[in-house]
């Protein structure tokens, strides 16, 4: 575009027509916003027009109103915040435990041949199994209490973090390792000063993937055996055909997942500013 404009401008500056103004083109963000607005309008239109029964799809206003009610008075003996904090507490606990164990395990797999031989097949064996497939076994072993749910989420988060860490450790630039060795680094110093920071971008990506998997597992686990939590709220509302609570629950679950992903991306930008830089 510019290669066409420049010769024209050189020939006759006065006659330069402001043909395609660069600002006119819609940015990607605007296109996304427009899509959302359009969807909301369609939702509002079909419900306000009475084309769809509120039982199947309540109006946006009704859902919002219900949201307010849930936040202040609650549903199934707990407010929205109590359901939310129950869910967040579970995933937080599982995530903390997974980070504390999966990163050392990943470093061991990536760094040590014997550890890789022992742990790699175990992780690769259970990783592809959908968590809900082994949930019954966990319930048989650990009951239907909090432990089962947290354990299930923990297992779902553990594998992606361990695998990502191992990959990060394996792909450490050998020149950086040699540089540290030639400066007198011991084995422990190599891990602390070179391997861990090198693998940090991969570790954070693993946490992002793990949180995504963990969140969907959490909601699914709460659908089956729980007395609080967002998944429980949606499930019990569905049994009584309280569609507005169902829709609201789904929206809140989606919003939390989105917020988690965004904050982890921000954390990644802050913690590993060198990632993606051509250094």
């Amino acid at each position: 575009m510019s290669s066409l404009q420049i010769p024209a401008a050189l020939k006759d500056p006065a006659a330069s027509i402001p043909a395609p103004v660069p600002g006119r083109r819609l940015s990607t963000r605007w296109i996304s916003t427009l899509t959302l607005v359009t969807l909301l309008s369609i939702w509002w239109a079909v419900t306000a027009g009475g084309w769809i029964e509120p039982l199947f799809l309540p109006a946006p206003a009704a859902v919002l109103e219900k949201g307010w009610l849930l936040a202040t008075q609650g549903y199934m003996e707990s407010t929205l915040w109590q359901h939310l904090s129950a869910s967040l507490g579970r995933i937080g606990l599982a995530l903390g435990a997974a980070i504390l164990t999966a990163i050392p395990v990943g470093i061991a797999i990536g760094h040590n041949r014997i550890a890789r031989g022992i742990l790699d097949p175990l992780i690769e064996f259970y990783r592809p199994i959908p968590p809900l497939a082994y949930l019954p076994l966990i319930v048989i072993w650990c009951g239907i209490g909090e432990l089962s749910k947290v354990l299930l989420i923990y297992l779902a988060i553990f594998a992606p973090i361990a695998i990502a860490t191992a990959t990060g450790v394996r792909t450490v630039d050998p020149a950086k390792l040699r540089a540290a060795q030639s400066l007198g680094a011991t084995r422990a110093q190599l891990i602390r000063h070179v391997i861990l920071p090198s693998a940090l971008p991969e570790i954070l990506t693993g946490v992002r993937i793990g949180l995504g998997v963990g969140w969907s597992t959490l909601v699914a686990a709460e659908l089956i055996a729980a007395t609080s939590g967002l998944g429980f709220m949606v499930q019990s509302a569905a049994q009584f055909l309280v569609t507005d609570v169902v829709v609201l629950g789904i929206l809140v679950i989606a919003l939390i997942a989105f917020a988690l992903e965004m904050s982890l991306r921000a954390l990644q930008r802050k913690l590993v500013p060198w990632h993606g830089q051509s250094h």
């Binding site: 060795q181 920071p197 830089q277």
Partner: peptide, 19 residues
Amino acid sequence: SGPGAERGVVFQDDALLPW
């Protein structure tokens, strides 16, 4: 026997630590 701090090495691709 093995690398050590008494022999400093400068590498072709700098091998600096970006963090």
